[in-house]
């Protein structure tokens, strides 16, 4: 159960952080007219195609005591990043980045540009337009981004193994725990955990698709 709690905590932290940094990135991707925009788009999508071990490997090297991030962290806090919960969060944020940014970008782009024009001629600057128009109209996208990054983090294995190792209560997440149980031939325990993860994942995805199908919308669609 400790592993499940840890997984949920990790997923919630990652989802929150991804919403916070995903929004400005998605905003820029949706509205920038810069011709080199495709480059950043490709970088954002990288974690979709790279094996988690590759991502985890680079994250581990960067966070290690001789890596740039690791050195900085040691200088700031006196301890390393690798094999810590914080390190796990950082790596997971990287790994789940496209799952937050892509739905956000898509829903920002889906807002009728004339509504943004209307906001501008009524005297609103970019920030006010974002809070009063873009964000409320992108609410389904925000929900999807949060849920997908939560669910994706919940199910990750390779990155956690590379960066976090397998420390009970610190970095041993559900997926690692299941792997452990299977390795030690404890199929009963593995089954319980696997089933739990299956149910949670299904519930979470149901939310996403319900939003997609507009089972509920915050206002009458027209």
């Amino acid at each position: 159960m400790e592993a499940l709690w840890l997984s949920l905590k990790l997923a919630a932290c990652v989802a929150a952080i991804l919403l916070a940094i995903g929004m400005p990135v998605a905003y820029w991707l949706a509205y920038s007219t810069w011709r080199g925009k495709f480059l950043l788009e490709s970088v954002v999508a990288l974690p979709l195609v790279l094996p988690p071990t590759v991502l985890g490997f680079y994250a581990l090297v960067a966070m290690g005591p001789r890596g740039p991030l690791g050195k900085l962290w040691i200088a700031l806090f006196g301890h390393g990043l690798a094999f810590t919960f914080t390190g796990l969060i950082l790596a997971s944020v990287l790994y789940s980045f496209p799952f937050a940014v892509q739905p956000l970008t898509a829903s920002f782009e889906g807002v009728d540009p004339r509504l943004l024009d209307a906001s501008a001629v009524l005297g609103a600057g970019a920030l006010r337009t974002f809070w009063r128009v873009i964000l409320p109209l992108s609410l389904p996208g925000v929900v999807i981004a949060a849920v997908l990054s939560f669910a994706h983090t919940l199910g990750e294995f390779g990155v956690v193994l590379m960066v976090g190792g397998n420390l009970a209560g610190v970095t041993r997440t559900v997926s690692i725990d299941i792997y452990d149980h299977v390795q030690s031939l404890e199929y009963g325990a593995a089954n319980r955990m696997a089933l739990l993860l299956l149910v949670i994942s299904f519930a979470v995805l149901s939310v996403v698709y319900a939003v997609n199908r507009r089972v509920w919308t915050p206002w009458a669609a027209k």
Binding site: L115, D117, A118, L122, A124, R132, W219
Partner: peptide, 29 residues
């Protein structure tokens, strides 16, 4: 920039904010 011009513009599509009531739309500016 547009927000500082004080020029009103009614678009062909009207571009009323769908998530705001009539009153909130009118109060927007």
């Amino acid at each position: 920039p547009a927000p500082k011009r004080r020029i009103a513009y009614v678009f062909q599509t009207l571009a009323l904010f769908p998530h705001l009531s009539a009153e909130e739309n009118v109060a927007y500016g």
